[in-house]
Structure formats: C-alpha cells, structure tokens
Simulated scan of single mutants.
Amino acid sequence: MRFLIVGAGALGGYFGGRLLEAGRDVTFLLRPRRVAQLAKTGLVIQSPQGNLQLPAPRHVLADGIDGPYDVILVGSKAYDLASTMDSFAPAVGPNTVILPLLNGMQHIDALAARFGEERVLGGLCLISATLDDEGRVLHLNDTHDLNYGERAGGRSARVDAIAAQFAGANFGSNASENILQEMWEKWVFIASAAGVTTLLRSSFGEIVAAGGEAVSLSIFDECSAIAAHNGFAPRAAAVQRGRAFLTMPGSPITASMYKDMARGAAVEADHIIGDLLRRKAPGQAATPSVLQIAYVNLKAYEARRAA
C-alpha cells in the first residue's frame, strides 16, 4: 500500500515517520523549503515514545507526482486546505482513499466536493506535537493516537487494509466504527478550549484561579448543544473528560490556537469556531454568547494581523 503524507510538519512528520520506521511504503509531499531543511537534518522525531532519525525520507514535489497513491494522509492547517488540495490532486486515482486529520467538519465538505464523497474517510489524531526552529518534530506528551473510519459507520475492506498497515507502527491506531461521533466530540472540546483560552489569554488553570470556571463551562455547554442539534451529542464520558480538563486547577494547558495567536501566527478561527456557530440551532444563543464573543475576538485578531 502506497502512502502519500502531505507535508512533514508536526502531524505528517510524526505519523509518516512512524510508518516509515515500521517499513511501510511512504512518500512525503513537500514544499521546497522543507526539502532543503530535511536535506540537512533528515526527519528527526524527539518523543517520549522513542526518538527517531530518518536521514533521507523519500519525498516528491507537487509537480513531480507520477501517479495515484492508495492512501493520502492530510494534516495541513485549515487555512491552507485549498492550496493543499491543489498540490496532491494529481495523486488521486479511482481507488485512492483520503484520510484527513484536521479538526472540525468544514474540511470534510471541501474534500468531498473536490474529490468525491466516496474517497474521503473520517479521521482525527490525539497528539501534542510541534516543529522547533530546526524543523525537528517534538512530541510533547505520551499520547500519539490516530483514529479513522468510514463516515457512514461500520467497517470496510479498505479500512481493514489500512488497519493492517498501521498495525506494528509505533503509534496508537483505532479503526473506528463511529468516527463522526468521535470527530464531533473532539471538535466540541477543541472549540471550547480555543475559544476560552484565546478570549481570556490564559491557561485552563489560570482561568480557574481567576474565578472563570463558569465561563469555560458555558462555552463547553454551548458547543455541546450545537453538536446535539446536529445529531452528535457528546457522550457522557466525553462530557466528563472535557469539563474536567477545562476546569482543572493549576493546569498549564492552553489550546494550540492560543499558542498560534501568542506568536502572531494565522489561526483557524472560521474552521474551528465560525463553522461551529453556523451549525447552531435557529434561535440558539440569540444574545451574544461566550462562543460568539470568542469568535469576534479571533476575527478582530485576524484583521489586526492582516493590517
């Protein structure tokens, strides 16, 4: 099975590197700048689950794609998705499966519209990772899980084939029979965490210490209600876990969107929070809610950044 990993950033670099480590047929689709970086250092992963250095991982540029791949793993930022789709389009053949790891749901709509509903699986990853200034992949926690499955539910031959390829690689993998539910539950938490930490410029623990626990829970409950309106009410375990994370005293955790904002980078405001607000029930939160205020805050940041 031929894998095309779109990019060798934190997500693509980590999971693609682990697949290469396990002897799978992996090619990275790269931009020239990352090609030059990897030529100097190789693909380096520093992780509590084991370090890895791959001196010369196989790669291709967009104009060098020579035919279809079996699986295309996409982990780009949402604001880069349009150009990312253009870059890997020549690798999509009649039997290609696209496995996206972006948060939210808007990317699913875009990929399905471009390449066909039947080619797009659901997927998510649970990992905290980043690139350092030298291009090394830094895995920051013990979790490194990748969940995937048919969006219609159940199992299929192609999901089983991917599961066989993932087996033995140094990351957790789960061929889910209910992947959309899992994606919505992650979206609820990601949007809540991003909304409250970017709005209040603080970690979960700092918000609790300032007496803001009710603010965090309000935004989580609003996101959960939107998911329920769309047929994916978070299950009890997801609700308990999300509320506990958001209200944990002393927690240093912030959302990755807050980290992006703090360093003046682009943020996924529309994809993570704006799109969620667009899916709310008519009349829900008619007066400005915490989630709506958080979205306005992010859009104001984007306007300042653009100026």
Rank of each mutant, 00 (worst) to 15 (best):
E213G: 15
N230G: 02
D145H: 13
L52W: 06
G211W: 03
A210H: 06
A228C: 06
K186N: 04
H107G: 03
A300Y: 13
N174R: 14
Q53C: 15
K280S: 09
A237M: 12
V290C: 11
L138Q: 12
N230S: 07
D133S: 15
A194M: 07
E268W: 01
T247Y: 01
G242E: 00
E206G: 13
L246Q: 06
E117F: 14
L276N: 04
E185M: 03
S76V: 09
E222S: 04
R24P: 10
V239H: 08
M85W: 08
V120T: 06
R263D: 12
A214M: 11
A209C: 04
K299Y: 07
R151N: 09
T27I: 02
A227D: 05
P288K: 05
K77N: 05
F220H: 13
L102R: 01
F28L: 00
A110I: 08
D132H: 07
F232Q: 08
L43T: 07
G153I: 02
A237F: 12
V290L: 12
P288D: 11
R31G: 07
A22K: 03
E182K: 13
T197K: 08
V290D: 10
C223N: 06
F245W: 15
S47G: 04
V60A: 07
A225F: 10
G23P: 04
P68G: 07
G9C: 11
T247H: 10
A78F: 04
L99E: 00
P249L: 02
H144T: 15
P252I: 09
Q106R: 15
G231Q: 07
V296T: 15
R279A: 13
I98W: 01
A167N: 11
A36V: 09
